[in-house]
Amino acid sequence: MFLEIIEVFTSGLINGSVYALMAVGLTLVYGVTKAFNFAYGSFYNLGGYFAWVLLIPLGVIGGYFSVFFMAIPFFFIVGYLLEKVLISPLRKYDDWEMKVMMLTLGLSLFMDFGYQAIFGPRIKSLPGIIEGTVQVGEVVLFQQDIVIFILSLSGMLCFWWILNNTRTGMAVQAVAQNPAGAQIVGIPKDFIFAATFAISTMMVGFGGILLCQKNFVDPMGSTDIMIKAWVITAFGGMGSIRGSLYAAFILGMLEAFVGWYFGMIHVQIATLTLLLVTLAIRPRGLMGRE
């Protein structure tokens, strides 16, 4: 019993860390650009397929090392173009928020069925980053899980450092806190918007590679991920990075324990209940600002 609880706890921790990586990217986009990206889950899947294409049909040298190395510029450019080509033209409309939601929802449908058309409807499995286990006392841990945890944590630290120590990172925060003020000091808003999309796409793509190699690549799995990322974001308070960090781990744990005790089918219902209760008490989430 005790051992089982430890196992469930570690799986919650590992899922939580990847969710955190992805939710932080999403909350950043919302906080800075106020755009509601409903295609976020499809970019998660793009991460999975990106790794699959490189590793299986192309058999790229260097394995996952090269995958991550190439993923960074690839997802940066994809995210940048997404904002420039599809999102920014909508900003001139009064009801652009609604239009962005609709467009990204359409985009996600297009991408999901695009994956099916290209790669077939069946799920694909990726080779593990690393095989084998580690024994700590009586607890057996998968090396793979440890690698996922370390990689997503270092991804987040990297993000944290960029945000607080680079000129562009500070400018991103400035736009989130006061767009008018940012314009006054001469921060080019258009560039920052696109850069934010690029960073968040990079994070979700990275998360996609990490989780897909643990589970598998499912062309229809994107809505599930998208809802998870959004629930975490709303639960933590939209635009609050710290809030979504906490929320990701809380949700990872909730998912692990509810799934273990009541069965996976109840996870989404539990998640929604938690979200509704939280929003009823705190309409702006855990750490949302007015």
């Binding site: 985009l107 996600s108 449908l109 297009f110 069925f113 058309a117």
Partner: peptide, 9 residues
Amino acid sequence: PLIMGAIVV
């Protein structure tokens, strides 16, 4: 659905 998605965009 692929075409529908593209139409929305």
